[in-house]
Amino acid sequence: MAPLAPRTGDAVFANVERVNAELFTLTYGAIVRQLLTDLEEVEEVNKQLDQMGYNIGVRLIDEFLAKSGVSSCVDFRETADVIAKVGFKMFLGVTASVTNWDAEGTSCSLVLDDNPLVDFVELPDTCQGLYYCNILSGVIRGALEMVSMKTEVTWIRDMLHGDDAYELRVKLLKQVPEEYPYKDDE
């Protein structure tokens, strides 16, 4: 079968099965609440959320590549663009914008205008150190690692902490060269 032509985020999103965003939002809220009760330390919760995101990212990349028809990106710039325009759209139904590139083209910011994770959410004083959406950074890190890119993903701005948008800083640490021939079993 010929590879699918790359599709736009909207087209992919229109073709996947969808669920009510509120169920998703509230389920995520239930997870965060459970973690806060179990782990008590906000730092630990951040770590656990990141780990969960990583687990998701590692698996999500398969579906992403299969359904989006995106082929290898020529550089990190294109990668960031694809994440923002196709990745976010395909899974969360929102898009991000890519800004603030550094001179080397190895780190940039993903800015989210709309974030389905945080609806109905307000952080109490006791949780000020919590990165509520930390799962997202884990997802990006996990997914990129599966396509040979070691990254570091951190939160720069968070509306729950009073900022005016959600901004994720994605920094490319190392591009692991692909090894030929692939060690396939077949």
């Binding site: 969808r18 009510n20 995520y28 969960m52 899974f91 389905p116």
Partner: peptide, 24 residues
Amino acid sequence: LSRGRQEVSLSAFAFLFSELVQYN
């Protein structure tokens, strides 16, 4: 109050739910 029309992909929910189960 949102009108509840927005959607996310089913996989996004399934991934999240799976993490919930695995964590527990």
